[in-house]
Simulated assay, not measured.
Amino acid sequence: MRVMVMVKATEDSEAGVMPTDELGAAMGRFNTDLIEAGIMLSGDGLKPSAQGKRIAFDGAERRVLDGPFAETRELVAGYWIWEVRDMDEAVEWVKRCPNPMPGPSEIEIRPFYTLADFEDAMTPQTRAIHEKNAETIAADDGTNA
């Protein structure tokens, strides 16, 4: 099961407060454990929402919204992509994580959809498009970035 593990933003992360060296080292050791266990596929921290943009969709209309965005507790400050047996394993790993923020914080775990989840909603032609895209991404050696 592939999951996205999201570190929720706080007032400190939105203010651009950088982690202490002690926290950076602890997170580095945690990431090493994840990599050695074959769980971590990717992960990164995100800059404050003041440096981001949102695109609002309404039918054919597109509207660009500049950060910062309200509701800090709903924002994401960083993420991992993990491959785990099940949600219970993901929870156990998150419980081992150092607190990613200087004060109270939250980490959210969400499973990804797979093509099988859309089986009843896709025609064979649509499925073929998505399968080809997945193959192309898997074969990319980084030159298409």
Rank of each mutant, 00 (worst) to 15 (best):
R2L: 13
V94Q: 08
F57E: 00
A60M: 10
Q51I: 13
E131R: 08
V91S: 05
S105F: 01
Y79S: 02
T114Q: 05
F118M: 14
T136P: 08
V7E: 06
V64R: 00
R127P: 02
L46I: 11
M4V: 13
T20R: 06
V84Q: 03
D141M: 10
A56M: 09
V7N: 03
V64W: 02
D21N: 07
P111H: 00
P19Q: 13
D86C: 02
D86E: 05
G78F: 12
A138P: 12
P100A: 13
P104A: 15
T72H: 10
D21L: 09
A128I: 04
L75R: 13
P124S: 04
A90F: 01
T32I: 12
L34A: 09
S49L: 02
E108I: 03
A90N: 03
V7D: 03
I39E: 03
G52Y: 00
G45K: 07
D58V: 03
N133W: 15
A50V: 10
A25F: 15
A77T: 03
T136D: 14
E135V: 09
D44G: 11
Y79N: 00
K47C: 07
Y113G: 04
G78N: 11
R73E: 12
N31C: 08
K53R: 15
E119A: 10
T20C: 04
C97V: 05
